[in-house]
């Protein structure tokens, strides 16, 4: 089985969100970037398929050279080869189109994405990619088994879960549950050393066009101070929730 894991390179969650150039660009100053957590869960599941079922695992990212440390980290976790499509991502469409070209040529059986980029949280790329490849698609995937060309997946739905079957090739949008957090792999020294020698192929983009454009960003209006309520006067809380916030 040939697996491709799509890795998005996102600001660490504790990052301060600021914008520059007249609020038109995200300010990366002092921001630490990491593998998107949803992709890390998927990558760990891919490692399981590699160890138990002899799968090969490539990783791919659409981004500039600054994403390479993130890709090396994924290689250190155990992926075999990294591919970087050398262009700055501007929207989900452009990213999916660039990914679709390379993924299509690579004849992958299973393409693992995250359900969403945890900080940009578009949740667009996996479905767009599946649609473009005319591959089967399962979103919010919290369990995945593959036997031959048949996949069995568990999908999280509002208020529960469902079990689905599909044949390969398959694209999934994965999240926590596809592996447990305690199974996440932290790269060890040997992995890090090996990762330095693994191939990281830079591919030039096909020049796919975006379908949307971020015009500007805005931060929410600062929140007022919390209203503290005396524990001896809980009637006041109920009154505020009823008459001021109008939520009960």
């Amino acid at each position: 089985m040939k697996i491709l894991v799509c890795i998005s390179h996102v600001p660490d969650t504790t990052s301060k969100i600021n914008f520059t150039e007249g609020d038109s660009k995200f300010d990366t100053n002092g921001v630490q970037f990491v593998i998107n957590p949803n992709d890390e869960f998927g990558l760990t599941r891919a490692m399981w398929f590699k160890e138990k079922q002899g799968a090969s695992v490539d990783i791919i990212n659409v981004g500039g050279p600054e994403t390479e440390p993130t890709l090396r980290k994924a290689l250190a976790i155990g992926a075999d080869t990294a591919i970087r499509i050398n262009t700055i991502p501007t929207d989900g469409f452009q990213v999916a189109k660039e990914l679709a070209k390379v993924a299509g040529e690579g004849n992958y059986d299973l393409i693992i994405c995250g359900r969403e980029s945890i900080d940009y949280n578009g949740g667009m790329v996996p479905g767009l990619l599946a649609g473009m490849l005319k591959a089967n698609f399962i979103n919010t995937c919290i369990g995945l088994e593959v036997e031959g060309v048949k996949a069995t997946a568990i999908r999280e739905i509002d208020g529960g879960k469902e079990t689905l079957t599909a044949s390969l090739p398959l694209v999934i949008g994965g999240q926590k549950g596809i592996v447990e957090e305690s199974d996440l792999k932290i790269p060890n020294m040997r992995g890090i050393m090996q990762a330095r020698k693994k191939p990281l192929n830079v591919v030039e983009p096909s020049g796919a066009e975006a379908a949307t454009k971020a015009v500007k960003f805005e931060k929410p209006a600062p929140k007022g101070d919390v209203k503290l309520i005396d524990p001896e006067n809980l009637d006041q809380l109920i009154d505020l929730l009823h008459n001021e916030a109008k939520v009960i």
Binding site: D91, N121, G123, M124, L128, G131, A211
Partner: peptide, 23 residues
């Protein structure tokens, strides 16, 4: 943007060659 809505929206977008804005 229910679980199902999020699941189908990008598929609809590809079929209609439409740009998609989520959230």
């Amino acid at each position: 943007q229910s679980a199902n809505g999020k699941y189908i929206a990008p598929l609809v977008a590809v079929q209609l060659e439409a740009g998609y804005a989520s959230n």
